Simulated assay, not measured.
Amino acid sequence: MKNEYQECLDACLACMEACNICFDACLNEEDVKMMANCIRLDRVCADTCSLAAKAIQSDSPFKEEICRLCAEICAACGEECNKHSHEHCQMCADACFRCAEACRRMITA
């Protein structure tokens, strides 16, 4: 597997985990309603990262297209999480931005 593919795979799995942790922690925040968009994006981002990881692992002919979409969703999730000062949101934002960048690098490799 190309180095860029492995980096992207690792970033997708790390981002999926960070989004799942953030999702769960947001549900336990005092004002859950305020966290609704964060929770929603955490879910779609984790699911997309999972799909991207599977596409890379199976050498799908659509892996570039899936990773392009994954980069867009990760960037959106990272921007949303970055709006919140909670530690889990900040950690998620960092993982999302790293994943978006890794996906972009893989696509252009």
Rank of each mutant, 00 (worst) to 15 (best):
G78H: 06
A95F: 01
D42E: 10
C15H: 06
C89N: 15
H84T: 03
A18Q: 03
D24Y: 11
C74L: 03
L13F: 05
Q6N: 14
E80Y: 04
I39F: 07
L13E: 15
N3L: 08
C103R: 00
E101D: 13
M91G: 12
K83C: 06
A95N: 03
D47P: 01
D31H: 10
C38N: 13
M16K: 15
E29G: 07
E17G: 09
G78Y: 03
C92E: 13
E65Q: 12
E4T: 08
A71S: 14
C15E: 10
I21Q: 14
M106V: 04
R105W: 01
E17N: 11
K63M: 06
R98W: 04
H84K: 12
R40G: 02
A11G: 07
C49G: 00
K33L: 12
V44A: 05
L41I: 03
A93H: 01
C92K: 00
E30R: 14
M34Q: 13
D10W: 00
L9I: 03
L9S: 09
D59C: 04
H88T: 07
L13M: 14
N3E: 14
E80N: 08
F23Y: 15
A46T: 05
C12M: 02
I39C: 11
E72R: 10
S60N: 07
R43W: 03
D10E: 13
C15W: 03
A76E: 11
F97W: 13
I21F: 10
I39K: 12
E87G: 11
A75S: 11
F23C: 14
F23R: 15
A76I: 00
Q6F: 10
L41A: 02
L13P: 07
A11V: 02
C15P: 07
I21E: 14
V32L: 09
E4V: 06
M16S: 12
K54C: 05
C19D: 07
N20T: 04
I73G: 00
M35S: 13
G78A: 09
K33F: 03
A109T: 07
L41F: 14
T108G: 05
C26D: 12
S85C: 04
I66F: 01
I66C: 08
L27R: 13
S50G: 06
S58R: 09
F23G: 10
A71F: 02
S58H: 08
N82Q: 08
K33S: 11
C77A: 13
M106D: 02
A36T: 08
S60K: 04
A18E: 02
V44H: 13
D47M: 09
